[in-house]
């Protein structure tokens, strides 16, 4: 178990309407870790991230981030405490340029960083975006849009970055590039909570992983141990 917990989720339950999607999730993410949630479609991975971010209306349980319980707090307050979230659909804003999408990510941070510096810093990390700053964001490829979605979440300097299916619908070359980037981010001090359909890829980058099934955590271990355990993978992750 990690000693220096940054995020502790205890007995998290969530509902969409009358459907009881999360039935008691317990997990921990330590400072500097990459933790991965794996499991089949509908297991509750996305809902877990959304609940931590405050996007699910009906939840019960505890979501403790840096010592403060976040349940009941608005989304912007969670963001202000250092939570960043890149949703699965990426949600690049249509009709805005790459630069304006990045600016949008920076606005909540107020005057903490100069806009030009912050955008230049992102352009350095994501050279593909640097060339396209004034292009309409929606004209970029899926992979480039995913890069933009990550850059937009990173630009405000979150301490815990939550990513939902970053590899989905992206060509393999870009997926490698993106996972290299996630490793680099971790080295620079960003903690990462990842939901990833591609189990091998996910376990290859993560320190630890939680396996979800039907709204509960059914198993958790180090990524290396899970990678070696074909039976577990077969049982909970085979599509």
């Amino acid at each position: 178990m990690p000693r220096d917990a940054m995020l502790t989720v205890e007995g998290l339950q969530a509902w969409y309407g009358s459907s009881h999607v999360l039935q008691g999730i317990d997990l921990e993410v330590a400072r500097g870790e990459i933790v991965c949630l794996i499991g089949r479609n509908g297991a509750g991975k996305t809902t877990t991230l959304r609940s931590v971010m405050g996007l699910v209306a009906r939840v019960r349980g505890r979501v403790v981030f840096d010592g403060a319980d976040l349940v009941g707090r608005p989304v912007h307050a969670r963001h202000a405490r250092g939570l960043g979230y890149v949703p699965e659909e990426r949600r690049i804003v249509q009709g805005l340029s790459v630069r304006d999408n990045l600016r949008l990510g920076l606005l909540a941070a107020g005057g903490r960083r100069r806009e030009a510096d912050a955008i230049a810093a992102m352009a350095e990390i994501f050279p593909r975006l640097a060339e396209r700053l004034d292009q309409s964001a929606i004209t970029m490829s899926g992979g480039e849009q995913q890069m933009l979605a990550i850059a937009r979440a990173l630009i405000s300097g979150p301490r815990l970055l939550m990513l939902d299916e970053p590899s989905e619908g992206i060509m393999p070359l870009l997926v490698d590039e993106m996972f290299d980037l996630l490793r680099r981010l971790r080295e620079e001090g960003t903690t990462i909570l990842l939901v990833e359909q591609n189990v091998e890829l996910a376990l290859g980058i993560a320190d630890r992983a939680y396996i979800l099934d039907q709204g509960t955590v059914v198993h958790h271990d180090t990524a290396a141990a899970l990678l070696a355990d074909a039976a577990i993978q077969e049982r909970y992750c085979a599509v």
């Binding site: 996007l55 912007h76 009709g95 805005l96 606005l107 405000s156």
Partner: peptide, 25 residues
């Protein structure tokens, strides 16, 4: 203006504006 940017983005997708930490209220 920055406020205008938030309004333009919010008209398209209020949820991502919230996720990016902006108090849409």
């Amino acid at each position: 203006t920055s406020y205008g940017l938030i309004i333009r983005a919010g008209a398209r997708d209020p949820q991502i504006v919230r996720i990016l930490g902006i108090d849409v209220g």
